[in-house]
């Protein structure tokens, strides 16, 4: 067929052009933060703000280097990341199982969904005192809180994704003789995958939020503890370093999910690939 042989070379050229565009956009994104950091340093050095309340970026770098040097920073990062990882995996895992059951069956929905909607209405931090009462101040209440935080966004998005699957595609599955779990695996799950990822990414960022909440209240290690410690000892630099590290960890973990999302959902015909 003569009509089909064109794309290859053009497509490669276009994609490398896109890559360069992406690089430019990424560096563009650094302009504002860089300007802010410079202004911050200047403001503190100029004496307009007390360096006790707002330590300049250069001091933060020293603090960071100290913490990294004696290994405590890595320990805090390790313990916090582990808590998030465990809580997120449990919460998201439960949400996928329960969400599939609720999304696929009206009966399970009638049975379970009202309960989850009611539980969701509770501001999650209200659980904290109860969790502390029930589970003590060990790992259990922290992980449980993170699990709660991760559960709801994943659950809600996944259920919505399954319920919104295009009837026309489900009919295709039917025509090909798919029923039961094969219909679920081959039509419902792939069709709901984009929604699932939206839920996972929201769930992950909430997991970090709830980690901080849990560690602020009762912890002797972790980045949330570093925040409390900094406040109690009057060291704004510690607080700021903990904030920066939390931001970085949140960003890195989100980028990992996003990378996975792009790999698994490359088939989507999304508006995302807009030109700069």
């Amino acid at each position: 067929m003569s009509e089909v042989s064109v794309p290859a070379s053009g497509a490669i050229a276009a994609s490398s052009r896109l890559d360069r565009g992406g690089l430019i956009r990424r560096t563009e994104g650094l302009l504002v933060p860089a300007a802010l950091v410079i202004a911050w340093e200047a403001v503190v050095r100029g004496g307009w703000v007390s360096s006790h309340l707002l330590p300049p970026p250069s001091e933060l770098v020293t603090t960071l280097a100290d913490l990294a040097g004696n290994g405590t920073l890595l320990e805090h990062i390790g313990i916090s990341s582990l808590r998030v990882l465990i809580g997120f995996l449990i919460g998201a895992g439960l949400a996928v199982v329960v969400g599939a059951a609720v999304g696929l069956s009206r009966r399970t929905e009638a049975l379970l969904d009202p309960t989850f909607q009611a539980l969701r209405a509770i501001p999650s931090l209200a659980w904290v005192p109860l969790l502390l009462l029930w589970l003590g101040i060990d790992e259990a209440p922290k992980i449980t809180l993170i699990t709660i935080g991760a559960f709801f966004p994943v659950y809600l998005n996944f259920v919505a994704g399954i319920q919104k699957v295009d009837r026309k595609l489900v009919e295709v599955g039917g025509i090909y003789g798919l029923t039961g779990y094969r219909l679920i695996a081959r039509i419902f799950l792939p069709a709901a995958l984009p929604n699932l990822f939206t839920g996972l990414r929201t769930g992950l960022s909430l997991s970090w939020m709830f980690l901080v909440a849990a560690e602020l209240i009762a912890a002797s290690r972790g980045l949330g503890y570093l925040l409390t410690d900094g406040r109690e000892t009057g060291r704004a630099d510690l607080v700021l370093v903990a904030i920066v590290v939390l931001a970085l960890l949140g960003k890195i973990s989100d980028s990992l999910l996003r990378w996975l999302e792009d790999r698994l959902l490359g088939w989507r015909d999304a508006f995302d690939s807009r030109p700069s």
Partner: peptide, 16 residues
């Protein structure tokens, strides 16, 4: 049933 096949009025390809 596998006895009957249907080509729909729209393509209905599975996008994934």
């Amino acid at each position: 049933s596998r006895d009957v096949g249907l080509i729909f009025q729209e393509p209905r390809l599975l996008p994934w």
